[in-house]
Design a protein around this nucleic acid. Structure first.
Lengths: 144, 144
DNA sequence: TACGATTATATCGTGTACGATACAAATGTA
DNA sequence: TACATTTGTATCGTACACGATATAATCGTA
């Protein structure tokens, strides 16, 4: 490739990552709107549905989001009565995030929602798996 | 896969996309900081270095960002003397974005910056190409 | 057991993103 | 040529992201 070719937007890896991420999020939006959730809030619920009652640093590690992003986000989710935020007894620096009943109940609607979305992204299951593993390879290399 | 498996964060495609995108951006940040740029501002420059003097709707289409994101972003870039924003003579609704001399000059430092970054993402060139084409397939399916 | 370092979270400021909406210029058409 | 429609940007409000910084609780260790 010519030197100049490397400067083209379309030849970058960073841009399609950025664009695809936002487009996929946008694709989720209408369905999430029905549940009154934003996309990062949905990700928090995915973590909690898998393992309830985790502290902020665990959530932070799983989502790769820092406390300055998660704290206000979780406060909003607390106001919506989706999660509880309680100081740990063992370590009073720690905040334990747990699901409320309302937060639990949202889980039941998600499989149907996911199947509705899965058919819309226009790639095969195999391509999805390749994409998945390459993205995780990237993530493992870049995080920390 | 069990129904519950689909609900795990790690089995989603949306999350690794979102996380990888942010991690790659963060990887660019130190180098962009030296140039005084944010990541979306760098993307705007990539478009303009390839083709100078485009109107906002073209930029909007290429970056898949709307006017409510681009307008304030471009105003900041104008204040930094990186771009000019001029109303078109032919169509007074249109805003033409062009590079200032300062914006032009930044281009020269980029190839070196890109090669510095390329070695850090930890995937092979072939994997990068596969990732690239899958992401574009996703983008083409999802946009509009 | 003092006390400096570390850890866990929160606060602040800046810059995106984006839905909803506004508005002026251009266009189509009766 | 009026005037409804469309097009191209801009404005407003809300919610992330994240660097820098603050603060309180805990830990390590001399």
């Amino acid at each position: 490739m010519e030197t100049d070719e490397f400067l083209k937007l379309e030849n970058q890896l960073c841009f399609p990552l950025y664009a695809a991420s936002r487009l996929v999020t946008k694709c989720y939006q209408p369905v999430l709107d029905e549940m009154g959730l934003t996309y990062p809030q949905y990700l928090v619920l995915l973590v909690l549905w898998e393992k309830d009652s985790v502290n902020l640093s665990v959530l932070s590690g799983k989502l790769q989001l820092q406390s300055n992003t998660l704290t206000p986000l979780l406060k909003r989710m607390q106001e919506m009565d989706l999660v509880n935020r309680v100081r740990s007894d063992q370590d009073e620096r720690s905040i334990i995030i747990s699901l409320t009943e309302k937060g639990q109940l949202l889980k039941s609607g998600v499989p149907e929602m996911q199947s509705r979305l899965a058919n819309n992204i226009g790639i095969t299951q195999e391509e999805g798996q390749v994409l998945h593993s390459l993205l995780y390879k990237l993530i493992e290399n870049l995080k920390v």
